[in-house]
Each structure stands twice: as structure tokens, then as C-alpha cells.
């Protein structure tokens, strides 16, 4: 009966095919050898089947990342579709790993696969979550840092979907600036 029901239901196609990547920090290997493609999906149903069977981000060990990118874009600055882009960065306090991290990451994923950025959804490349002892980070990567209108629209919608207060300010950094400066020193190009 369940099989028959599943066949009758049909699946809901997404606008894009998405790839989930996993990074585990092993210092004995090169950075790219630590980055693995987990799987790709292109329907709502397959997204949940995947999401339900992987570790929640809050249970990963420090140094690990999940990345969700459109099929054909690798989760690294060097990819041709990322190199002129940047990221909206959410920096979390340590205690937020247990209270908000998983919800923020799930809402980030839903924003991406649901194409919730209106006519600017094509600007989105993917999203990354970094699990780090000093504080976790979530970011949405977009393809063109100079597209102020698109970038700020994405930032405003993203902030609203995370349920962040108007008092909270989030910043956008161009990858070109992040790549040449260490961590927190990277220049903030836009804020919302």
C-alpha cells in the first residue's frame, strides 16, 4: 500500500539540482582531498530523504563543514561561478550550537531549494556551514559581489527567514577580500 501511495503521489521537482558536500579536516591530507561529494538531489522528497539520514550539523565534530551547492558549482572560491562572488555570513556564539544552529542551517537549505529569493535566486551558488570550536558559521554564497541590488535583496530575505531581529546586522564579504585577509579582518561590503 505504501509503495502504491508513493507511486501515486509523484515527486515535486526543484528548480535546480543540488549537491551536498562534506568536509572533514584531516591535516595529513590536502584541503581538496578532505572535501567529498555526498550526493545530489532534485526533488523535495529526495531532499528530505537525504536530510533525515545525515548527522545534524550540531553533532559534527569541529573542523567539519556541510556545503549545499547547485550542481556544477564546487564549494570553493576558485570555482569560476564563485570567484567574483561573496557570502552573507552568519556568525554564531558558542552556545547557539545547541539552541539555533540546526534550525538556522535547515532554514538556509529551505531558502535555497525553495528558490525563495524571487528574481534574484539565480544569483545564489550555495551555502556552507562551518563547525568550529571558536564559533560556528553559516553563509549563503552568491555569484557576483558587485550586484548590489541582487545581493542586498538576498540578504534581506535571508535575514527575515532566519527570524533575526531588525537590530541584528549581518554582513556580506566578497570572496576576493576574504581570500586575501585573515578571517574576521575581511572587509564587509554590504550590511542588512
Amino acid at each position: 500500500q505504501e509503495l502504491l501511495l508513493a507511486e501515486c503521489l509523484g515527486k515535486h521537482p526543484l528548480q535546480n539540482r543540488w549537491a551536498l558536500w562534506f568536509f572533514k579536516n584531516d591535516k595529513s591530507k590536502m584541503w581538496q582531498a578532505n572535501l567529498r561529494l555526498v550526493t545530489k538531489f532534485s526533488t523535495v522528497e529526495d531532499f528530505w530523504a537525504l536530510y533525515s539520514h545525515i548527522q545534524p550539523a550540531s553533532k559534527l565534530t569541529s573542523g567539519c563543514d556541510y556545503s549545499l551547492f547547485k550542481d556544477g558549482i564546487e564549494p570553493m572560491w576558485e570555482d569560476s561561478q564563485n570567484k567574483c562572488g561573496g557570502r552573507w555570513l552568519i556568525t554564531l556564539a558558542k552556545q547557539q550550537r545547541h539552541t539555533e544552529l540546526d534550525r538556522f542551517w535547515l532554514d538556509t537549505l529551505l531558502c535555497l531549494i525553495g528558490e525563495m529569493f524571487d528574481e534574484h535566486s539565480d544569483e545564489v551558488c550555495g551555502a556552507v556551514i562551518n563547525i568550529r570550536a571558536k564559533g560556528d558559521k553559516i553563509a549563503i554564497w552568491t555569484r557576483e559581489a558587485e550586484n548590489q541590488q541582487g545581493v542586498t535583496h538576498i540578504g534581506r530575505v535571508y535575514k527575515e527567514h532566519l527570524g533575526l531581529s531588525q537590530k541584528v546586522v549581518i554582513g556580506y564579504q566578497a570572496h576576493a577580500d576574504t581570500a586575501t585577509k585573515s578571517g574576521s579582518l575581511a572587509k564587509t561590503k554590504f550590511v542588512v
Binding site: 505504501e2 508513493a6 515535486h12 521537482p13 526543484l14 528548480q15 523535495v44 522528497e45 531532499f47 528530505w48 530523504a49 536530510y51 533525515s52 532554514d107 529551505l110 531549494i113 525553495g114 528558490e115 525563495m116 535566486s121 527567514h161
Partner: peptide, 20 residues
């Protein structure tokens, strides 16, 4: 036509597929 889904719609599928 673009395939767009809102949060509530997507969340509606969560527990159906978590239990399969």
C-alpha cells in the same frame, strides 16, 4: 515557470520522508 516552494510547503514533507 520557475519551481518555487515556501517554507511551510517544504516542511510539510519532512516527517513523511523521515519515517520511510
Amino acid at each position: 515557470e520557475k519551481k518555487r516552494y515556501d517554507r511551510e510547503f517544504l516542511l510539510g514533507f519532512q516527517f513523511i520522508f523521515a519515517s520511510m
